[in-house]
Amino acid sequence: MRIRATVAAVSGALALSAFVVPAAQADDGSSDTSYRARAEQALSHRTVFRAAAVAPPAPDVSFSNFKVAKAVKVGTTNHVSTTATYTLTHGADIDITSDDFANGPFLYRGSSIENATNMLVGDYPATCTATSATTADCTGVIDIDPVEDYLANSDAGTWSGGGLALTYSPRGEKMQGGLGKILVQRTSKLTVNASPEPVKKGKTITVTGKLSRANWEDGKYHGYTGQPVKLQFRKAGSSTYSTVKTIKTNSTGNLSTTVKASVDGYFRYSFAGTSTTPAVNAAGDYVDVTS
């Protein structure tokens, strides 16, 4: 979502979290009528500024059976998306096929919608199939761009899922949070190099590598420090890796350890992941062991 949390002073003493909406989308009369622009605007209305005005009427809808992926990996510049499905329950007076109605899923970072520090929405509304006069099964896409959505590295971790419904004439908005959980993670990379190649049996093999992850704030990859990483080995002709030892990345994310050469095979590093960074395996590096 093209907004970031800021702190605004209200009545001199009161400071509450509020979202900043681009000027082209900030007013109700904005010329940008896309679903994304309207969704971002509606979500920004939950702030203290909205409390001082008359809120638009809330459509008679509710969301349930919300399902979303366990995690989504976000790199430095790439656009990614994740799909959410849910049940939409609505009043008999709402026509879900009308151009005056739209709904979709969103994600928010924080303990509640009111306390959210960032939100992510989709470029387009969800598609829904009616299952009764007042219920529908819906599928919506949440689009994530680390640049356009102003993701900070501190945004990595657990986000919550929500549902948003919009009416256009008359104007109305309804949002419901606490529908599910998902990890929004900084994409990780892991390399390995085993040398010398070839090597005589019984001699020392040095295995180096690096664990890095996306930095959403400068658009680069930086070493992930102090992380436990497993050195694994797969014998030639086998399909299974076994763990040789576990070491930690240094202050720049680099890895280095030694082993004795025994048989031909592949060495790799394997990282189990954290809540902010996904698991990753390096591609195996083959070593030819001679007698």
Rank of each mutant, 00 (worst) to 15 (best):
T167E: 09
Y86V: 13
R234H: 11
R268T: 14
V259W: 12
L14C: 07
I3M: 15
A84G: 03
S62C: 07
T225V: 06
A52D: 05
K189L: 14
A69P: 12
Q185T: 02
A194H: 02
H90R: 10
A133Y: 11
G226Q: 09
P59M: 08
V207A: 00
T117A: 10
Y124T: 15
D285N: 13
L151T: 01
R234C: 14
A283P: 12
A152T: 08
H222Y: 02
G110T: 03
K210S: 07
H90N: 09
K73Y: 06
T258K: 07
T33S: 06
K73T: 09
A13E: 15
I205K: 02
T6P: 03
A283W: 09
R213F: 00
T129A: 06
E173S: 05
A39F: 04
V121R: 02
N118R: 15
D143Q: 07
L88Y: 05
R234W: 08
L166T: 02
Y35V: 10
K174W: 13
P196S: 01
R2K: 07
D137W: 07
N78H: 12
A165W: 10
H222R: 02
E197Q: 10
L211Y: 00
Q176F: 06
S212Q: 00
G75T: 02
A84I: 14
D288H: 13
G223W: 00
N215G: 01
T47W: 08
P57A: 13
I3Y: 10
V68E: 12
R213Y: 00
S239A: 15
A279H: 03
I94K: 02
K189G: 03
N254W: 05
T252P: 09
T89R: 05
Q25F: 10
D145T: 10
Q176R: 04
Q227L: 00
R4P: 08
V7C: 10
I182C: 05
S195W: 06
L231E: 14
V199K: 01
V54G: 03
V121L: 07
I94H: 03
V61W: 01
A165C: 12
N118C: 07
E197R: 04
S34D: 03
S251P: 10
R213W: 00
S256R: 08
L179M: 11
T117M: 14
P170C: 09
L166C: 03
L190K: 00
M175W: 12
Q176V: 08
A236T: 15
T134P: 02
R2S: 10
V20T: 13
T277F: 00
K220G: 04
